[in-house]
């Protein structure tokens, strides 16, 4: 009896959770709303730049269309935790050829990657009018729906890990932008989107686990450092085929560790 009480009190002191007060739910209101403001701004950019991109496509300006493809998409990639909540739009805007049984010929293969295929693989803007209009309509639809969405806090906080999982699964392999090889833009977009979430909740995370935050920051910096090697003078990125094998390998560790660490964020902030 005595022994078990003692064990229990020891357990309580040993348990890392007992040492810190839990995050007060109301402390999350500021960061969650700031995240929505960030997402709203990013979608504003997505809508504006998609208009310019699809204008170029419809005018038959292949060079401009190719140039605008990657910087436009970045604004989708950075807000994927919210954008992909809308399954129908995520499919029509951002599905990859693998998601479609009939591949590039599938009628319902639309959006960025379908346009990417024609621009970069077939090297033409021909036959893209309807797809360009559809993409424009879809991103505006997304803008409206996000405006009306009350962001679920657990999706916002969980979004940091989701973005890193996305990087781990599709960016390091170079399969996301397989025709244009502009994967590094998306890569940076995912990383920036995840970092934004960590930054917005920094104060709350710091109260719970300072060492965790330092480790996360270190790994973000490691990823950024490698990505920075491939930045071009115009603010863009080299194509992914230029990324050296040792750099690809060097990205795996920090990306996987980040994905794993960030997956504990919901629990740390009391949102499980």
């Amino acid at each position: 009896m005595k022994k078990s009480t003692l064990a229990l009190s020891l357990l309580m002191t040993l348990s890392p959770l007992a040492a810190f007060a839990a995050t007060a739910p109301l402390d999350l209101v500021g960061p969650v709303s700031d995240y929505k403001i960030y997402v709203t701004e990013e979608i504003g950019e997505l809508v504006t730049q998609t208009q310019a991109f699809t204008d170029a496509v419809k005018k038959g300006d292949l060079a401009t269309a190719k140039k605008l493809y990657a910087p436009t998409r970045v604004h989708y990639e950075s807000i994927e935790p919210i954008a992909e909540l809308f399954s129908d739009l995520d499919a029509s805007i951002d599905s990859r050829v693998d998601d479609h049984e009939k591949g590039v010929k599938a009628d319902d293969f639309t959006g960025f990657h379908r346009i990417e295929y024609t621009l970069f693989s077939e090297n033409t803007t021909q036959g893209l009018d309807a797809l360009a209009d559809g993409l424009n309509k879809d991103v505006k639809d997304l803008q409206d729906r996000v405006a009306g969405l009350t962001f679920p806090p657990e999706k916002v906080v969980g979004g940091a890990a989701a973005l890193l999982e996305e990087v781990a699964a599709t960016k390091i392999s170079g399969e996301e932008d397989r025709y244009s090889h502009t994967d590094l833009y998306d890569f940076q977009g995912n990383i920036d989107g995840a970092k934004k979430i960590v930054d917005l909740f920094r104060g709350q995370i710091e109260k719970q686990d300072k060492a965790f935050l330092a480790k996360v920051d270190k790994n973000f910096a490691a990823v950024d450092k490698i990505l920075a090697k491939y930045k071009t003078k115009d603010g863009g990125f080299e194509t992914y085929d230029k990324v050296k094998e040792n750099d690809r390998k060097a990205l795996v560790g920090p990306v996987n560790t980040l994905a794993e660490d960030l997956s504990t964020l919901r629990g740390k902030l009391g949102l499980n």
Binding site: V29, G30, S33, T150, F151
Partner: peptide
């Protein structure tokens, strides 16, 4: 509802204020 259930609505109201 618990306090956690109000994070969403209160955040959205702060977005409205913004």
């Amino acid at each position: 509802p618990s306090m956690v259930a109000f994070i969403g609505p209160l955040s959205e109201f702060r977005v409205y204020l913004s």
